[in-house]
């Protein structure tokens, strides 16, 4: 699946992430992680987001994640909601 629309979900509140999903004109998946847990848990955050993108067959997207010490489930949830919102779900 190709992401054709930019959407943002989540918040900057504690234990959450602000996640923006955008089209990637160059193709492939690119994940940029910033915020509080980026340095310490960057790999875990990337792998949580990636697991959902893979499950949902997303092949082209830029994902920007601003973390505020979110647990895995919140990262997965925000990624899933962003993909569904990009598909037009309410």
């Amino acid at each position: 699946m190709k992401i054709e629309k930019e959407v943002t979900v989540g918040t900057e509140e504690r234990e959450d992430v602000l996640l923006t999903l955008k089209p990637n004109p160059e193709g492939g998946i690119k994940i940029n992680i910033t915020g509080k847990g980026a340095e310490q848990f960057g790999e875990e955050i990337r792998s949580a987001a990636m697991s959902v993108l893979k499950e949902m067959n997303v092949e082209n997207a830029i994902v920007e994640i601003k973390d505020n010490w979110a647990f895995d489930y919140a990262i997965r949830a925000r990624t899933r909601a962003a993909v569904l919102a990009a598909k037009g779900e309410v």
């Binding site: 979900v9 989540g10 647990f71 895995d72 489930y73 919140a74 997965r76 949830a77 925000r78 899933r80 909601a81 569904l84 919102a85 779900e89 309410v90």
Partner: peptide, 19 residues
């Protein structure tokens, strides 16, 4: 809020897997 229904629904569903 209406524009947050989707995000909330999936946050809860994912929370149920871990919490």
């Amino acid at each position: 809020a209406p524009d947050q229904k989707l995000a909330a629904r999936w946050l809860v569903a994912e929370a149920f897997k871990d919490l």
